[in-house]
Design a protein around this nucleic acid. Structure first.
Lengths: 217, 217
DNA sequence: ACCCCTCCCTACTCGCTAGTAAGTTTTCTT
DNA sequence: AAGAAAACTTACTAGCGAGTAGGGAGGGGT
């Protein structure tokens, strides 16, 4: 009926496809620069010349500089929320749920977006956007604290302040955005394995992980 | 001999003293704002009105906005270096040295400067200052990695990548600057205790800490 | 009483950059 | 081939904020 009648624009190089790819390239380039040098220290001209185009070309894909930042934050918070869902889905102790969250979040962070996400510079967002991001972040924080509180109750996590423990974990995770470069020496898999086991040993009430390595001497 | 002959300006209200106190107030106010909202989002007018004075008054104490940032970074890196010295002074395993570093750093962070330190926005520094700060930070990083490597060798730290482990720790420590408020619910002592024991358990080859809590069930 | 020094104010300048206007090249359609 | 739409360019505008000029108030020394 109301279909526009286009014969499914076929091939891999139709207009919209290209447009989306270019848009993503802008997002990635900008995010990388934002993470490296900071949002305010990155001009739109910087982003443009990094892509080999001129500034106004950027405005075909994003309404404003803040809009780019907003989408970066959206991606980051979506990964957080995906991690929370993973934790809720996971059957087991509070610790199991927590580690499921951490694993899912890190996996998302590394895989699908190089490092499009930004965490700092929330304040650079327009009030309306900032409120939304803050609220969704708070949701993630609450859920993670919930996993920890549950773990403390069920005995899988050694007794400790749930809020402080959450801040400990967020520190580890958020700092990745500052130092991680896809070109760096460590592979995502190594990073995930190291960090998860550091957290697991630090939190676990039972020293289950100790088994895997014989004591030296 | 070459003393200026002033009869030691006596009391608590001599000129220089007041000046230094005002200067410190500027530094603390600015640093707090920088940490909260970011360097670029904080105008000199903001800082001034937070102190109840006008912008040009600030320029009596600091040459430029960047100068304030530079001193914040100096304070931060000095605490890092003090931690490294503490670690080097400490006799014992690599783990002991590492934990001495962490403890000293956190203690310095909380006590003497509320939160004057800034870590992000290194890029907002002038090139010359940035180079210095980066270099000194690299020194701290190397030393911490050294503690970890030593701990891996002497068996006090469970085998793991020293660089990644250092990044894990720096994440925890650096993120404090973002969330810590002196007015917050947790006391510095609680935070130090919780974080140090989380790190110790995560890193230690022997589960020495387990002794302190009876297994539940 | 006078001067001078410190401190701080109001009222500017000037550079930098986000965003826009208007024209040009490219690319798809028919 | 013609024409229209999309993509991108150069050349601007406008506003924000760091830093400054220059003046005024207060206090301590002589």
């Amino acid at each position: 009926m109301s279909e526009t009648g286009q014969p499914a624009p076929s091939e891999a190089f139709d207009r919209d496809q290209q447009r989306r790819r270019k848009r993503l390239a802008v997002l990635k380039t900008a995010a990388s620069a934002f993470n490296r040098r900071g949002f305010a220290n990155t001009s739109m001209d910087d982003v443009a010349s990094a892509l080999g185009i001129s500034k106004p070309a950027l405005y075909q894909y994003f309404k404003s500089k803040q809009d780019i930042l907003y989408e970066c934050h959206l991606l980051a918070v979506q990964h957080g929320e995906a991690g929370v869902e993973e934790g809720q889905r996971t059957r087991g102790s509070g610790l199991d749920k927590l580690l499921a969250y951490v694993g899912r979040y890190m996996h998302g962070f590394f895989s699908d977006l190089g490092s499009c996400a930004v965490l700092l510079d929330v304040y650079s967002l327009a009030d309306k956007h900032r409120a939304e991001i803050q609220k969704r972040r708070d949701g993630v924080t609450d859920a993670v604290e919930g996993f920890i509180a549950r773990g403390i109750k069920d005995g899988s996590i050694v007794e400790r302040d749930a809020k402080l423990t959450a801040l400990f974990i967020f520190g580890v995770l958020n700092w990745m955005l500052v130092w991680y470069r896809p070109s760096g020496p460590a592979t995502p898999a190594q990073i995930i394995e190291t960090f998860v086991s550091l957290l697991e040993r630090g939190l676990a009430a039972r020293a289950s992980v100790l088994i895997e390595s014989e004591p030296k001497l």
